[in-house]
Design a protein around this nucleic acid. Structure first.
Length: 460
RNA sequence: GGUCCCGUCGUCCAACGGUUAGGACGCCAGGUUUUCAUCCUGGAAACGGGGGUUCGACUCCCCCCGGGAUCACCA
């Protein structure tokens, strides 16, 4: 653990060459959690936002804003920045000059493109570097293989390895927490740090998030940027919770954590070493958990944004109890994320608009005869007619559903539930799958329910 | 191919020398007011292989095998 008097500084260094994807976010999240955890223990912690945009060809300002918005949406904050490497060229030039003066770097042969620039190479001392990784322990790599690697295209065109090192030193970064894909480049950065006369920070290399093919998660694995997840309708709390558990656990079987709880529990020691496969199914299930915990008012407000136009219009014309039943009982039971709402509207609620054609063959239950079914429907009509209209259309709660059920139940039990209930449900919806017949009848109202039953009866 | 990293159910994580190897997702079965969904209960499902060390190894060591990352004038 950190000494309370120590400072801790981490950085979020995306390069704005595309939207933040799930791997970037997980790395940033772990940096954030590490810093916050230290802070809770009394250590002064700073999180530095830094855009690494030295690749002028691919970097775009719009991506920076999207990245900032993404972190904001997820509740991941930073204390310094955002900095931009493109605006810090002078610092890099100074570093390059210092290296050249100290005979640790030199101008190499002419750049291979058409410019007049001469590349700057680092004079590799060719030695073995051992560093301690907070996740994996000691790692030793011989830097001889790297040769005199290039650190800048020209004096005012520094390259990645130089800029990260200079920035990390300049910004006082104490902990570099990044993806496992950076392990091999760590020694060459350490070489640079030593040449610049600074001390080596603590490293922690996180296991990669992989796709179902076990390869590093990327575009070809489908939706991987936050924007895509947002569009499909995942909750930030679910994404955070799921991502935190991809490559980390408290050491027990706990499954759910709020951001605050993560801040309290997170330690680098509990980060796992092996890669983690991303599972949309598991994310769905975590998301459903959080969806169910939303307060009714919040849920209703959000779910409306995803309703189909027809359902929205329908809900505007109906009473409170029906509206509540559709939103909370029918839809909520069938979605794990907002993006599922539309599909439920189109399938499980298709019967609301009364355009479903009844297939005569499907009205009767299994081996049941049309004749018997016709009789049951007729009896149902008789029973249902005994329910007063005002009782059917209870506006305060779903009591009407139970009234309908109670009225029919004894008959259904006597004859056989399937024999009676299937024809009723099918006649009302014209669908092989739908909510239960009592709920459907309640929503449809007395007149419509009886009309549909009469229609089905006439077909038999 | 060189170098480096990793290796517990299909997947995500537990068990850090002694457990019937545990939880979750998914899957299967049964149940809960007919169907679908929800919910409940139950079930199948793993220590990559071989040597050691030890009274005792998933846990420690070595070898093999397997998977991945990285080897840019990208970051």
């Amino acid at each position: 653990m950190q000494n309370p008097n120590n400072k801790v500084a981490v950085r979020y260094p995306p390069s704005p060459t595309g939207n933040l994807h799930i791997g970037n976010i997980r790395t940033i999240l772990f940096n954030y959690l590490f810093a916050k955890h230290a802070e809770r223990l009394g250590t002064e912690a700073s999180m530095i936002m830094r855009f690494e945009d030295t690749d002028k060809e691919r970097s775009k300002a719009e991506y920076e804003q999207v990245a900032l918005d993404t972190l904001d949406a997820l509740g991941i904050t930073f204390t310094d920045g955002p900095y931009r490497q493109s605006g810090r060229t002078n610092i890099y030039i100074q570093a390059i000059q210092k290296l050249i003066e100290n005979n640790m770097a030199y101008e190499g042969e002419k750049s291979k493109d058409n410019s007049e620039d001469r590349v700057i190479r680092f004079k590799n001392p060719n030695k073995k570097i051992t560093f301690t990784d907070a996740v994996r322990g000691n790692i030793t790599i011989d830097t001889t293989d790297f040769g005199d690697f290039i650190i800048a295209r020209s004096f005012n065109n520094p390259l990645y390895h130089l800029t990260v090192v200079v920035d990390d030193i300049d910004m006082g970064i104490t902990h570099i927490i990044r993806g496992e894909d950076h392990i091999t480049s760590t020694p060459r950065q350490i070489l640079l740090i030593e040449a610049l006369g600074s001390s080596i920070p603590q490293y922690a290399h996180l296991p990669l998030i992989i796709g179902s093919d076990k390869k590093k998660l990327g575009k070809r694995h489908g939706a991987v940027t936050y924007q895509e997840f947002e569009k499909v309708g995942y909750l930030p709390s679910a994404i955070i919770n799921y991502l935190a558990l991809l490559g980390w656990s408290e050491g027990n079987d706990r499954e759910f954590y709020s951001m605050e709880e993560l801040e309290k529990a997170f330690t680098l020691e509990n980060v796992s070493k092996s890669p983690a496969m991303f599972s949309y199914e598991k994310l769905d299930s975590v998301n459903r958990h959080y969806l169910l915990q939303l307060p009714d008012t919040v849920y209703e407000q959000e779910v409306q944004k995803y309703l189909t136009k027809q359902i929205q219009i329908y809900l505007d014309t109906t009473n409170k109890a029906v509206r509540h039943t559709i939103l909370h009982t029918i839809i909520k039971d069938r979605i794990s994320k907002w993006g599922d709402v539309q599909n439920v509207c189109n399938t499980e609620l298709s019967w609301l608009k009364n355009t479903n054609q009844l297939n005569k063959e499907k009205i009767a239950w299994k081996e049941s005869s049309n004749e018997a079914t016709k009789k049951h429907i007729n009896n149902l009509i008789t029973l249902l007619k005994t329910i007063p209209k005002n009782k059917w259309e209870q506006v305060t709660n779903r009591e009407a559903t139970f009234t309908i059920k109670n009225t029919i139940w004894e008959y259904a039990e006597t004859i056989g539930r399937g024999e009676v209930l299937w024809p009723m449900r099918y006649s009302l919806t014209g669908e092989e799958r739908s909510p239960d017949p009592f709920t459907v009848a309640f929503i449809l109202g007395k007149e419509e329910t009886i009309a549909r039953l009469e229609l089905a009866k006439s077909l038999l």
